[in-house]
Design a protein around this nucleic acid. Sequence first.
DNA 1: ACCTGAACACCGTTCAAGT
DNA 2: ACCTGAACACCGTTCAAGT
Lengths: 222, 222
Amino acid sequence: VNSVNPMRQRAQPRAGRPTSGVLDRDAIARTALAIVDDRGYQSLTMAAVASTLGVAPSALYNHVTSKQDLLHLVQELVMDGVDHSLFDSHPLDQALRRWATSYRDVFAEHIPLIPVIAVLPVASSPRLLAMYESVAAGFARVGWEPERIVPAIVAIESFIFGSALDASAPDDIFEPGSEAERVPNFKAAIDAQRSTGRRSADAAFDAGLEALVAGLLAERTR
Amino acid sequence: VNSVNPMRQRAQPRAGRPTSGVLDRDAIARTALAIVDDRGYQSLTMAAVASTLGVAPSALYNHVTSKQDLLHLVQELVMDGVDHSLFDSHPLDQALRRWATSYRDVFAEHIPLIPVIAVLPVASSPRLLAMYESVAAGFARVGWEPERIVPAIVAIESFIFGSALDASAPDDIFEPGSEAERVPNFKAAIDAQRSTGRRSADAAFDAGLEALVAGLLAERTR
DNA sequence: ACCTGAACACCGTTCAAGT
DNA sequence: ACCTGAACACCGTTCAAGT
């Protein structure tokens, strides 16, 4: 309005290319992860990421193509917590257990990434690809038939994703309530499990992982 | 505007209580399911349900408390496709296979319901409760220790949900692309699996289900 | 009791204008 | 090349007004 207005000198950035690059994909990804870690996925909006970085939401689109793309970046960071280091130094069953447990624990904290990773082409995720190579090598080393390796990996991964989902649910969802006397077998099973003092999600993960690993590694004669 | 305007006589409903009850929870649920079945979950909006029923979106809130509540109703309809009828007439392993397969097939078509059902209190879903009773009775009948039944059910269910997610993914996501020579074991496993001609999701479900059922039903001596 | 219509508080995303 | 700011096309949900 006033061309000599001293307010023209401002701390706030104006439109136009900034002198220093304020944004890049890595900074955006880390900011997104920080938001998720302390406020959860429902708080992860493009506006929240932008405001944390001190830019307008539209500025993000110079670096990421979409929110889906942003979630891919977060997934890549989060995959760091999955431990597939044991496959070249330990027995297969031990390496599988360690891998599966760390994988479940990571994704139990990142449920909304599960649908993202499930449809993500592995070629676009270096860490996912490195993980699959480690696990595949672990199976190959003990002489598995090549065509059975991918199904085994996918089966364990499916169990992991389902278990992560389950681990994030409240503890009391199995309470049959007023219908208890109409489902006596289920009610008895619930009460018996609860009396062990363990979370049913944890007991289920342990029992399922043992069964799956034992079942897969057992010699088959069909 | 004009008090003698003949347009006051209209086909469109006005505000106020209609002479016949046009809406109820069941009609809303069936309309929602119909939209999902032929246009998918991304088309399931409160506005779409309302417009199909010929009402304003806000009218739905006289019958459902939220979209989450609407999804519960859809889940209840969809659970009808899960077959838990074999547990009182067939061997446990056969009943488990039939149950798991139908359960996976249903939820592969209803992926967005998986997070809904994972946190849904069973007391609020009669069909979910009936299903758990059947499965629990199946385990009890063959003499399982009561405290092991719920973990076994939850483990299989976790595998089912993960497998449903996996079944909905595109077929070519495992293609390592330009990174192929850096992941030789994984590449070889992918090629070997593909040469079998089966979808890896289906091979994984079969292998995993066999391993899980065999592993769970095997006598344990720890 | 149960509808309409207007409004609210968000979303992700696009794009012209600026430097 | 990379930012701002305005705008768009949605969402789910609330609520006063009406019958």
